[in-house]
Design a protein around this nucleic acid. Sequence first.
RNA 1: GCGCCAUUAGCUCAGUGGAAGAGCAUCUGACUUUUAAUCAGGUGGUCGAAGGUUCGAAUCCUUCAUGGCGCACCA
Length: 514
Amino acid sequence: MTEDQEQQGHSGGQPEGASHSELRSIKLAKLAALREGGRDPYRHVRWDRTHNCGVIAPDFEQLEGSTVVLAGRVMSKRDMGKAAFLDIQDESGRVQLYFKKDKLDEAQGEGSFDAAMQLDLGDILGVRGTVFRTRTGQASVEVQAYELLCKTLETLPEKWHGLTDTEQRFRQRYVDMIVNRESLARLTQRSRAVAEVRRFLDQRDFLEVETPVLHAVCGGATAEPFVTHWNALKADYYLRIALELHLKRLIVGGMERVYEIGRVFRNEGVSTRHNPEFTMLELYWAYVDYSDIMQLTEDLVVHLADNVFQAREVTYGDYALKLEAPFAKMTFNEALGRYAGCTLADLTTLEQVRAQGERLGLHMPREAGYEKSLDEIFKEKVEPHLIQPTFIYDYPKGLSPLAKSMPRDIAREKGYPDEVEICYRFELFLACMEVANSFSELNDPIDQRARMEAQVADKAEGIAEVDEDFLTALEYGMPPTGGLGVGIDRLVMVLSGTPSIREVLAFPQLRDKK
RNA sequence: GCGCCAUUAGCUCAGUGGAAGAGCAUCUGACUUUUAAUCAGGUGGUCGAAGGUUCGAAUCCUUCAUGGCGCACCA
């Protein structure tokens, strides 16, 4: 045997090389050696830390010379033979460790330094050491003792470019989080935002509730549901597409302020703004109307900007958003007049809507009815202008089957044409994206039944069945109530300046790979 | 569902018809304050998959898979 071959043998007798399986074999050999030496890295159950890695540099003045106990993942290694620097990171940040052969071997035993040089990037290390500053001024920890708390068998992505492959970032979010710390930060921020929504509502005496995810009858929105099967009942059930109908039942039952933050499921394609399962906040507040809810919504958005994201100005793609109250407010009708050059008075019939749509150069689908066609004009001509926070309110009734209608005399006073019924509804737009939807809730059980039955009759709406129990609940009487739905993912997107919904989801929906 | 683009070593990327490459990681050696450490020498490939064209294909063609972006559906 040559000297080289002998030395390879010492590293475990595994094939030398760098294919994925070979890299793994080398680490398995290191693991086996550790276990043989009675140092199984997986045996540890706890490691009591005195500090987080991220505080060593900023709190250096207070910490200099003191002994600290830290833990973290090895992220880089600069080995200089008889001394080495390793960076470890924990949730709080990174710190540089200094290993010095003579000192470490003296403190922890002969061979400690050489064993430390067998550490791989990605290993999780516990250390005890002294805080000091290197010659170049870098706050560091000189290690007196270390313990391998977990051995990695995989190879981390490159230290400089990191992991950029989008597919792998989403499929293996844990790797993304390790090497792209902004991903960890974004998901942390999302968690804080949701917690802050709860705190905000709890302070206002709202009750958080949980309602069923499995629905026998699907309602509360117009969307295609996912269908599942309940074996014991031998019946198909639906994953909920909205929280609305159950929350209103709780209002009927006497809760006066309720909310739920929960996952809803819509059987649709994915895009930068859509994930088939997403998180919705819905709240209902008895005895207030949509204008109160508008104020609450504005307060909530600004509160989150101040308390979680610490910024009232956000760069969102090409947009510079200013989240300053009061937000712009415009009626649906005014918005049409301003951006589409026509108002509801010009849009009282399907024929007129089609004609206006064509005048504006829009493709108006033949099968679309009045409401859908009107919505087409709004989406194409108005939404692209709603960059800064804007409340659009007073929608045509047809677009809002769960919203209370504005009485004819009031609508006439406000200048709406008699032919178009208006309802008490608003939506909040941020960066041209609908983020919140609110109504003064329809509590007329007769009207609600008529609208729901019309939806079922209109095959295009795709609603199979009326939720009879919900209608019964309304017959028992629901007080005048303001309601709100907020797409939490979208709100976090905007507030964090993240133009893709996938980035604010820990595990965005991807096709199963084989 | 439709269109465009992408897919090469563990990671980041070159390579447009003629011998599969680089950097990082990894392995070996040197180096006791480095920080993208440095220096020297190695290993590592089903070029996304399957067909086809060609003397010859990572490269051209077809189909498929996955992803991204846009459209459609939708919040």
